[in-house]
Amino acid sequence: MIKAWRVLRELVRGAAITARHFFVNMTFHTLRLFGIRTRRRGAVTIQYPEVQKALSPRHHSLHRIRPRPDGKPSCVACMLCVTVCPSECLYVEAAEDPDPEVQKLPAKFVVDLNRCCFCGFCVEACPVDAIRMDTGEIRLASLTRAGLEVPLDKP
């Protein structure tokens, strides 16, 4: 009997909490509807395409290759990113550069977003800090698979 009472009490408490949220939020919604601006809002929702949240500095967005001062990619096509990539989404083709200080440059650097899992291992593996995932580009969608194969060799 005591247990039943406790169960009932908890049930009522639960319903009271949700009901409280409902009425409190409803009040703020209603106030807003009548043009009364309050500091608190009825919902924590961010209406995404219109309002955009600032990305965390650690966020993994679309990759980019940092350029050298002269505009060439700073990647040296060492393929460590290719090696470490768990989803096997990177494709790098090296080319010879006439500058003996540079020697090796990527002729092709393609990241296949169909496969990429945005783990950021490539960023950590890079010995020259060439690849980064800080473009802030998160709307990565395409109607074709080929559209998701992003070439990065032209920085």
Partner: peptide
């Protein structure tokens, strides 16, 4: 809508 408002959503 009710579930959303209960859960502080829209």
């Amino acid at each position: 809508k009710e579930s959303a408002v209960m859960q502080d959503r829209i």
